[in-house]
Amino acid sequence: MTRQQAERGGRRAERIAAWWLRLKGWRILAMRARTPVGEVDIVARRGRTLAFVEVKARAGEAEAAQSLDEWRLRRVARAAEALAARHARPGDTIRIDAIFIVPGRLPRHLENVWHG
């Protein structure tokens, strides 16, 4: 797979994840939110919960889970910290979630995957 194909696949997975979140009552605040310390795929809000969401698209669920390692989560956490001032409100619960996109299956939303 070329880098261009991987980029296209990643964007498609992020769109699928965003629609999945919308169907579950989330409002999408930002997609591919970049900071000097990293990027967050989706920033979403539902009520008093603000979620910074990492999207992983892989051939199988095991591969998706393995791709979400501590190094990547730490990067997302740093980026979320930088973005929180822009999106958080007083009293919000802030968390880092993940969504796995696997062919032939519904998206899998994992809540609060980072406890660093």
Rank of each mutant, 00 (worst) to 15 (best):
E61Y: 09
R48E: 09
W26T: 08
W26Y: 15
P36K: 04
L50S: 03
V43Y: 09
A17G: 02
R74G: 11
M31G: 14
R72N: 09
I28T: 07
D41I: 04
W20D: 15
R74K: 12
G25W: 12
R46Y: 03
R58T: 06
R34L: 06
E63T: 01
F52E: 06
R32W: 10
E63F: 03
R32V: 04
R78I: 00
M31K: 15
A64I: 09
R27A: 02
R72K: 14
R32M: 06
A84I: 00
E54M: 11
G47V: 02
R34Q: 14
A64H: 03
L73K: 08
K24Q: 12
F52M: 03
A82G: 03
K56D: 05
V76H: 00
L29N: 02
A17R: 00
V76E: 01
A62V: 06
A13I: 05
T35G: 08
V40F: 14
D69H: 14
W26I: 05
A51D: 12
R27H: 08
E70M: 13
A59H: 11
L29H: 04
R58F: 10
E81T: 12
G38A: 10
D69C: 13
M31Y: 06
A57E: 12
L50H: 02
A13K: 01
Q66I: 00
A30C: 03
G47I: 03
A82S: 09
A59F: 06
A64T: 08
A18S: 06
A80Q: 07
R34D: 14
P36N: 09
A79K: 05
A62F: 07
P36V: 11
E61N: 03
L23M: 07
L29V: 05
K24E: 09
R58A: 15
Q66F: 08
Q66K: 15
R46K: 15
V37G: 01
V43M: 10
D69P: 07
V55M: 07
S67W: 06
V53R: 11
R32D: 15
A79D: 07
R58Y: 11
R12S: 05
W20S: 10
A64R: 02
W71H: 13
A17S: 01
E70L: 14
R48P: 04
L68N: 03
R12H: 11
R75W: 00
E61L: 15
F52K: 02
R45W: 07
I28L: 14
I42V: 15
A57W: 09
E63Q: 13
R15M: 07
E14P: 03
R15V: 01
A44D: 05
A64S: 06
V43S: 09
E63D: 15
A77P: 01
I28K: 13
K56T: 14
E63S: 10
A44R: 04
F52N: 03
A59T: 10
L83C: 05
R46E: 08
A57I: 01
A30E: 05
S67M: 11
A84P: 02
I42F: 08
A18T: 00
T49W: 10
V40G: 13
R27Q: 09
A30L: 02
A79G: 08
A44L: 02
A17H: 00
D69F: 09
L73P: 03
R27G: 01
E70P: 07
M31F: 08
D41A: 05
I16R: 13
R48I: 01
A51H: 05
E14D: 08
V55S: 01
A79V: 00
G47T: 01
S67G: 14
G38W: 05
E54N: 11
R74P: 02
L23V: 02
R27F: 00
